[in-house]
Computed example of a mutant assay.
Amino acid sequence: MTLRLPAADGGLRAYEPRTEPLTVSPGTPLTSRTVLSAAHVVADPLADVSPDAPAAVDWDATLAFRRHLWSHGLGVAEAMDTAQRGMGLDWAGAAELIRRSAAEARAVGGRVACGVGTDQLTTGTLAEIRAAYEEQLALVEEAGAQAILMASRALAAAAAGPEDYLEVYGHLLRQAAEPVVLHWLGPMFDPVLEGYWGSADLDAATETFLEVVAAHPDKVDGVKISLLDAGREIALRRRLPRGVRCYTGDDFHYPELIAGDEQGFSHALLGIFDPLGPLAAEAVRVLDTGNTQGFRDLLDPTVELSRHLFQAPTRFYKTGVVLLAWLAGHQSHFTMVGGLQSARSLPHLARAYELADGLGLFPDPKLAEERMRNLLALYGVNQ
């Protein structure tokens, strides 16, 4: 049945939903690339919470979604920005999420890496920032998960220059029990992180970042680059010490970065692999056979959806991610912690539905159509 979706001119246009999904089944483990999906959290829609109250999480649905990702061979990057870390999920909620996901990973044999930050603080001295990082690092290690050292808003505010980043990160890496992932999150994902690594000049910031890695190569499993700049990621990737991986966080150029070139490739730690999970895993399995073109044929068509979800202001991409999880049947509602389901317009949400439907991402296209029809009616668009 035809749906009437919002058009660019402010009117409505006809769209014919897909009737059959893309068939993708869980398969063999991924071998040629390490692939982590940054997973969203499912809010509890029945909780009576105020805007300033701690997030209420539906733990059963949240963990079920992680089992879905693990079943397709993907790892889970937990308590990252996709999980609304710092945008509705506070440190207490993130700590509980880390404990529960790590336990679930052990139970099902899944891989999990967890974000370590400083969101106990809003501001602080360098000593307080180090202590906040240490508290979170200890919790992640005690949970049995790999640590991802996230960018710190407090450090961005407190650091006087590159030397402060070198001191804080060097201190943490010396303490880490196992190699960690260093995460460089650009200001398009979090404007407060402008000038991270001690300079707004990305070339200068890159030198500081690489200096941290070079000083502790045995404690750095890899680096995650989220700058939405493929050329800069490739240049940085080629300068990493041997054995240190590059995990792309570029939701605009991921197919080409994962496929790589004659001088190397990127692994992946991506928010877009939340809605693309099964399709992304299938594409990497094709790449595992050496079929780069087949990998690109599967993944290249998904870039339009990713660019749409991550369009400026990029930090609100989570709204589209959760919409697609609801339409795909992974949760029973379109509600987000912090009320962020309202962060994108109806035309934006409708276009996300159309692009995802065209890719066959919905296991039950009829269910997705019915839910989209209900959402349109809520906004006063009668069919």
Results as ranks from 00 to 15, higher is better:
355 L>Y: 11
295 F>M: 11
56 A>M: 15
350 A>E: 07
75 G>Y: 09
255 P>Q: 15
40 H>P: 01
116 V>G: 11
74 L>R: 00
118 T>G: 00
237 R>C: 06
54 P>L: 02
309 L>Q: 06
365 P>F: 03
296 R>I: 08
149 L>A: 13
343 A>V: 04
128 E>G: 13
351 R>Y: 04
195 G>L: 11
304 E>S: 08
294 G>E: 12
103 A>C: 05
367 L>A: 10
260 G>V: 07
172 L>I: 12
123 T>C: 13
206 T>A: 13
237 R>F: 08
2 T>V: 04
364 D>I: 05
154 A>Y: 08
335 T>Y: 13
98 I>L: 14
24 V>Y: 00
243 G>N: 12
221 D>K: 10
88 G>T: 12
86 G>I: 09
363 P>H: 03
72 H>V: 00
305 L>I: 00
270 L>K: 06
259 A>C: 11
139 L>C: 05
166 L>E: 13
31 T>G: 06
109 G>Y: 05
224 K>V: 12
172 L>S: 10
70 W>H: 07
87 M>Q: 03
135 E>D: 13
25 S>L: 08
377 A>Y: 12
123 T>K: 11
130 R>T: 13
225 I>F: 15
337 V>T: 15
318 K>T: 02
326 W>M: 00
14 A>Q: 06
186 G>L: 05
66 R>K: 11
309 L>I: 06
133 Y>C: 15
318 K>V: 04
88 G>D: 09
222 G>K: 04
57 V>Y: 03
212 V>M: 13
90 D>S: 09
184 W>Y: 10
94 A>H: 01
125 T>S: 15
63 L>T: 01
171 H>G: 10
174 R>W: 07
132 A>H: 11
49 V>Y: 08
159 A>C: 11
289 T>H: 08
55 A>C: 04
62 T>M: 04
312 A>P: 04
377 A>G: 02
207 E>F: 14
306 S>F: 04
281 A>K: 01
275 P>H: 04
209 F>S: 15
272 I>V: 12
263 Q>P: 03
34 T>K: 02
276 L>N: 00
323 L>S: 00
140 V>I: 11
353 Y>C: 03
280 A>C: 12
275 P>A: 01
20 E>Y: 09
268 A>Q: 07
198 G>P: 00
226 S>E: 07
81 D>M: 00
367 L>T: 05
222 G>D: 05
62 T>Y: 06
39 A>P: 01
67 R>T: 08
308 H>Y: 02
140 V>W: 10
270 L>M: 08
289 T>D: 07
153 R>D: 14
55 A>Y: 00
266 S>I: 06
206 T>M: 13
81 D>Y: 03
354 E>F: 09
184 W>S: 08
52 D>F: 14
46 L>W: 10
290 G>V: 07
133 Y>Q: 09
